[in-house]
Structures are given as structure tokens and as C-alpha cells.
């Protein structure tokens, strides 16, 4: 990894998930900031530039899609990569997220934190498309 670590913003309201993803991503060498809801996430995005946004869809107050829409309206040419964090059964929402410019999505229940880190690495450095999420066995 280069001398300047890639910057990631994690917007996730669930404390344990936020803590764990932050820990793993930091260990993997990323500079991670986190926000616990949509509004504070958007505020952070206004003051700082990030390389990648890990965005939970279900958030209190402003939800993930509203955040993304707001951000894209203000920064239509932002090169920031967006990965949606979803739960099972949100297919319709995922489609909407893609239309708003999200590059990929992860189903939280189906990915271990290390797999999430891998997906993030793939999105930032790799050229290969994110693999199909493995369904529950």
C-alpha cells in the first residue's frame, strides 16, 4: 500500500458493526472515519474528501439512499466509490442505489468482516468486478 492511505467513510448506525468494520479496515491500512447516521455522514462528506464510502442503507433519520442522492446532486463528478451495506431482501433498494451511482453492494449477514475488507480492496485497487455475493448456505 502506498504512503498515503486511502480514505474510507463508513456510515453505519449499528455500533458493533461500525466498530468491527472500522477496526478491520484500519488494520488493513485504510484511514477510516465513521458516522452513525445519514446526516452526520453527509456533513462529514462536505468537509472532507474520501476515496470510498461504505454506506448502510437503513439509517435513522436520513437513510443511505437519501444521503447518496444528496451527495451526488452536490458533487456530480466525485470520483468516490460507493459500496452499499444491505440486509437480505432489499433487492429493490439496491437497484435504486445503483441508479444513484453505487458501484457494489454487500449483504452484511453473508459477509465476514475480512470479506468486506477484500471487497473494499477490490473496489479500490482491483479491476475485477465484485463477485456475486454468496447466498446463505
Amino acid at each position: 500500500m502506498g504512503p498515503t492511505p486511502k480514505k474510507i467513510l463508513l456510515v453505519e448506525d449499528e455500533d458493533f458493526i461500525r466498530e468491527l468494520y472500522t477496526r478491520q479496515l484500519t488494520k488493513a491500512g485504510f484511514a477510516v472515519k465513521s458516522a452513525i447516521d445519514g446526516q452526520s455522514g453527509l456533513d462529514t462528506l462536505k468537509t472532507e474528501q474520501f476515496d470510498l464510502l461504505l454506506l448502510d442503507i437503513m439509517l435513522p433519520g436520513m437513510n443511505g439512499l437519501q444521503l447518496l442522492r444528496e451527495f451526488k446532486t452536490q458533487n456530480p463528478n466525485s470520483p468516490m466509490i460507493t459500496i452499499l451495506l444491505t440486509n437480505l431482501g432489499q433487492e429493490a433498494v439496491i437497484k435504486e442505489g445503483f441508479e444513484l451511482g453505487a458501484q457494489a453492494y454487500l449483504i452484511k449477514a453473508s459477509y465476514t468482516p475480512d470479506q468486506v475488507v477484500n471487497e473494499v480492496k477490490n473496489a479500490l485497487f482491483g479491476n475485477q468486478p465484485p463477485p456475486n455475493p454468496t447466498a446463505a448456505q
Binding site: I17, R23, P113, D114
Partner: peptide
């Protein structure tokens, strides 16, 4: 099921990190 999912995702996540 939805309510059970979140804590369970945490359990699986933390265990997998610990085991690794």
C-alpha cells in the same frame, strides 16, 4: 427474523475476526 439478524451478524463477524 429481522431483529435476530443484526445481533447474529455481529456474533458471526466478531467470531470470524477472532478466529482469523
Amino acid at each position: 427474523s429481522h431483529e435476530l439478524k443484526t445481533p447474529l451478524t455481529n456474533i458471526v463477524g466478531y467470531l470470524s475476526v477472532f478466529l482469523n
